[in-house]
Write a protein that binds this DNA or RNA. Structure first.
Length: 119
DNA sequence: CACCTGACTGAAT
DNA sequence: AATTCAGCCAGGT
């Protein structure tokens, strides 16, 4: 069966929900994990669509540079930063300090097969 | 239906 | 090493 856009969104949310507190993941990581690879933009698009879903910690998703590119979509100006800082992260100039040490790569913690299996 | 935009990324310059 | 360009794909105008 051909995966629909809605299914893609759903998978993105499922991955983001697995991101533990104090950790972050990039759009590219998620895209690669889901097999779409080149469509990192779609991940960002999915996040935009999930804006109303409180079960999706969208503040833990940043770009590959560790920059809070989506903070403007959190209503406030420092909401996203505040959320991350409350989880133990440190933000400086809209960028996560020591970003690479706080990355939670789904590839290193989840198995695609288990994930798709319904985990 | 064609064109533009965007929570991105990697390659090229 | 920093900046620019091009590829991607869905959604809106």
């Amino acid at each position: 069966m051909k995966p629909s856009t809605a299914d893609f969104y759903e998978r993105v949310y499922r991955v983001v929900r697995r991101v533990p507190s104090g950790k972050v993941v990039s759009y590219g990581h998620i895209a690669r994990f889901l097999g779409t690879g080149r469509s990192a933009r779609l991940v960002g698009y999915a996040m935009n669509a999930s804006h109303g879903d409180p079960t999706v910690p969208a503040h833990r998703v940043v770009n590959r540079n560790g920059v809070l590119t989506g903070k403007h979509f959190f209503g406030g100006s420092t909401v996203m930063q505040d959320l991350l800082e409350s989880e133990g992260l440190r933000i400086e100039d809209d960028q996560i300090v020591d970003f690479e040490s706080h990355v939670w790569d789904p590839m290193d913690h989840l198995e695609q097969e288990d994930f798709l299996k319904g985990e």
